[in-house]
Amino acid sequence: MTAVIAKGVVKSFGVGDTRTLALRGADLEARAGEMTFLVGPSGCGKTTLISILAAMLSPDDGEVSVFGESPFRLRRSQLTRFRMRTVGFVFQQFNLLPALDAAENAAVPLIVQGVSTGKALKKASDLLDRLGLSGSAYKLPGQLSGGQQQRVAIARALIHEPRLVVCDEPTASLDAASGRAVMELLRDVAVSPERAAIVVTHDDRVYSFADRIATMADGRVVATTTTIASRDKETG
């Protein structure tokens, strides 16, 4: 099942002489149940493309569909709700709120959706346990290692069961072992038949976790390859 379709997406920044074309008609397909990697050199438009796929940035031209919905045809308030329900985020710098403990950070998307704080924290603690952070639920981000912080960020990305998980360089701030552990975790928990995960990465050590790799250059997706992981899955 196709989860995300981007067709001819164009995006520019600045005006006049300072105008920079970040995307020049990018096409991408990501399937549910798969982990799609977006790779390419710096400045090729990866971050701009996932910002658009995550409904945080509107394209100048082209079409985007996420699980059959066209987010940029929605009103602004509907777009915010769409993002709240449909998308989960994992960032390179974790971006945890430093004043909240691990469970509270993980519970933020549920609290935003209006779930009671008690229920949200309970679910967050359970999820953190599953992610190997039992005993760290009440620790502040500053008291956790980089790998642990990224696990909390993954918990935050998944707690509201979004259909699309978008990860921006999730291993870039981690050492090789932690990076690998985080990717294993993402594969285990973020990929499911109803969910798609799109990962932007420079880290070729983790390419083996991808089902599909889309290579970008100069604002376009220039090649898409399926990987061993995907072929294994297809052949059962």
């Binding site: 915010t80 998307p109 935003v112 935050r156």
Partner: peptide, 16 residues
């Protein structure tokens, strides 16, 4: 601001 941006990203409206 970064924290507010994260909240905005996860779907917190401007009003909230």
């Amino acid at each position: 601001l970064k924290q507010f941006a994260v909240l905005k990203a996860v779907g917190v409206s401007n009003l909230r």
